[in-house]
């Protein structure tokens, strides 16, 4: 290594280290708080304590954790798979089969994306009530499956998808669906990984809409549980932190696993 690149490398580590430290600190604090009593948390104790088991037990007596995690898991699994599948297909369709009409349609979708959900929440609620679907997983999942955000993401990412690959596949006699499944999907692995992380997180953390459509205790999700724990007059932040960690870990794990896909895709080799 030349001295210049060595200095540059050290600077990179220093910068990244600092950024990582700042990023991780609140997470660390959450882990620490999980092991401390309410008063210790309020007083800003920064070291691990011995209250972890007590906090856990206290949470379990207040909340049916198994049920809650089951609900969150089902919603997130179905939501993520359906959203990524449907919305990636649409994004691909919008980019590969471009036409002026589709471009206009797409602009319209972008505008729809910018309408705050709060404005549409009441009529949407009425629709689900009329359909008799309140308090069901279907009510939570259905409005989110076609995500304009993810459609837009795939449309933009597809611009980097090499057309030569598609042309070659056509010559080989593959039909359009086969091209999508066998060529596009593996090539865009990293895009799918990113989309999965994002959609997983959005579903797992979904708050306002589940709050409105879910009505009974046995349908509660982890996000709603954390919210109600905090709103006590005298919230036990130790217990809240246990719930917060449980609410956070799955997304971290999914990210950690999927970030491995952020390595050079097949495109580099093909071109």
């Amino acid at each position: 290594m030349s001295p210049v690149s060595r200095i540059l490398r050290s600077a990179t580590y220093l910068g990244l280290g600092l950024a990582a430290l700042i990023s991780v600190f609140p997470f660390y604090w959450m882990l620490v708080s999980m092991t401390n009593s309410a008063v210790e948390v309020a007083n800003g104790k920064l070291t691990f304590g011995d209250q972890l088991i007590a906090n856990f037990q206290s949470l379990l007596t207040e909340v049916d954790m198994v049920r809650v995690l089951f609900n969150s898991t089902v919603i997130t699994l179905f939501g993520t798979i359906l959203t990524v599948a449907l919305s990636s297909a649409a994004g691909y369709g919008f980019e590969i089969f471009r036409s002026r009409f589709k471009d206009h349609l797409f602009s319209l979708l972008l505008l729809m994306l910018s309408i705050p959900f709060g404005a549409m929440m009441i009529p949407l609620f009425v629709m689900f009530a009329k359909a008799g679907l309140l308090n069901s997983f279907a009510a939570i999942l259905l409005p989110g499956i076609a995500s304009i955000f993810i459609v837009f993401y795939f449309r933009q990412a597809t611009k980097a998808f090499p057309h030569e690959l598609r042309d070659a596949a056509r010559i080989d006699g593959l039909n359009e669906l086969q091209i999508f499944l066998r060529i596009y999907l593996p090539v865009m692995r990293s895009t799918y990984a990113a989309a999965t992380v994002i959609v997983f997180m959005a579903n797992w953390n979904a708050y306002l809409w589940p709050l409105i459509v879910l009505q009974t205790n046995d349908m509660k999700t982890i996000t709603l549980v954390v919210s109600s724990l905090v709103s006590a007059y005298n919230p036990n932040y130790g217990v809240v932190s246990v719930a917060a960690v449980i609410a956070t870990l799955p997304t971290c794990l999914v990210f950690f696993i999927l970030q491995r896909s952020f390595v050079e895709g097949l495109t580099g080799g093909v071109k």
Binding site: P123, A129, L211, I212, N217, L224, S227, S228, V230, S231
Partner: peptide, 17 residues
């Protein structure tokens, strides 16, 4: 059991709908 703000949000949304 709901958070206070959550309870109000739910109640008002249902009333309004």
């Amino acid at each position: 059991d709901l958070a206070k703000a959550d309870l109000e949000t739910k109640l008002q949304t249902q009333f309004a709908s």
